[in-house]
Simulated assay, not measured.
Amino acid sequence: MQGFIIKLTRAREEDMIVTIIAEENLHTLYRFYGARHSPINLGFKIDFEAEYSIKSSIGRLRDVIHLGFPWIGQYERIRLWQQFIALFHPHLKDSESIGDFYFTLLEDAAQRWKDQNPKRVAIETYVRLLDYEGRLHKELTCFFCDLPIEEDISLIRAFLPAHQHCSHTLSINSKGLEWLYTHASTLFLDDNEVERLWYVLNEGF
């Protein structure tokens, strides 16, 4: 099966506990003697086998093959990818059967990562995630004061809307925000707005 590594935790010696978003499930597996096998890293897409035994509460990661992307050698792109994909672990860590949505979402993002601004891809991907989970707040009511927002819209963690004067953060233009929410596209957001939303995204899903 295939999946994306969203967390690596060192165990004893060179062993690793590896958390993977696969095509249907979230897997947490033990990899013995990591230094003696092909290297793996956060964000890698891999083909692998999971071996289970009644003798252990955690499955074993076996037969790992790294499925690379064309941009994997570009430092800035891989750094941003690892920063983005690590956010999935705290969000999904208590899940097991997650369906194919998250794998497909990451697959699409990884394909677009090469040719587009990675921060824009991450923001657009996150909006799709929020929409899928029913957490995309399209009604513009301020999270802080619970009053309607007619102008100077700002977004806080989980892209919750707020008045700029309530959140004391950079505002987002209403046309750009509407387009983002309707089309999962940052087309009408400028670079400063993208930087602001990238910062918000990294506060957690």
Rank of each mutant, 00 (worst) to 15 (best):
V200A: 05
K119G: 03
R79S: 11
A184N: 09
L8M: 04
A86N: 05
V127M: 06
I40W: 02
A50T: 03
R128P: 00
W179Y: 15
S185E: 06
D190P: 03
T28I: 10
I20Q: 06
P90Q: 06
F159N: 03
I6R: 12
E13S: 11
N117T: 09
K93A: 14
H66T: 11
T141D: 10
Q111S: 07
K45M: 11
A22C: 08
A86Y: 01
D15P: 09
S154C: 13
R196L: 11
R79H: 09
Q83T: 09
T28W: 04
I123Q: 04
E23G: 12
L197M: 10
F44S: 08
E23T: 13
D100G: 11
C142A: 04
W198T: 00
V64R: 00
E124L: 01
F84R: 09
L189M: 09
E178D: 12
I72L: 10
K138G: 02
D15H: 15
F69L: 09
F69A: 08
I85A: 05
I46K: 01
F143L: 12
L87R: 07
D191K: 15
E14I: 08
R60P: 00
F32I: 02
D190Q: 07
E23L: 06
I149L: 01
L197Y: 03
I46M: 05
L160K: 15
I6D: 02
F143E: 07
S95V: 05
L87A: 03
H27T: 01
S53Y: 11
D152G: 10
K93Q: 14
K55R: 15
T141M: 14
E151D: 13
D100A: 11
F143P: 01
G204N: 01
F101A: 08
A50R: 02
E107D: 12
D131R: 01
E76F: 10
L180R: 02
P90G: 07
T125Q: 01
K7V: 07
R12M: 12
H137I: 13
P90K: 10
E203H: 13
R31M: 15
A50E: 09
M1Y: 07
W81V: 01
A110D: 00
M16C: 06
W71L: 06
F88R: 11
L67I: 13
K138A: 06
H183F: 14
R112P: 02
M1N: 11
Y102F: 12
K138S: 08
I72Q: 11
I5F: 04
E49W: 04
G204C: 02
E13Y: 06
H165Y: 14
D152L: 10
A11L: 15
L87D: 00
E139P: 00
Y126A: 15
S174R: 15
E24V: 09
R128L: 07
L105H: 05
H168E: 10
Y126F: 14
A122W: 00
S57Q: 14
R196A: 13
S174G: 09
D190G: 06
W81N: 05
Y52F: 14
H163G: 01
Y30F: 15
Y52E: 01
S95C: 12
Y181W: 09
Q164E: 12
H183P: 01
L29R: 07
K7Y: 04
R60V: 08
T182Q: 13
M16T: 02
L67Y: 07
Y102M: 08
H168S: 09
G176S: 05
H37G: 15
W113P: 00
W81D: 01
R31K: 14
L197T: 01
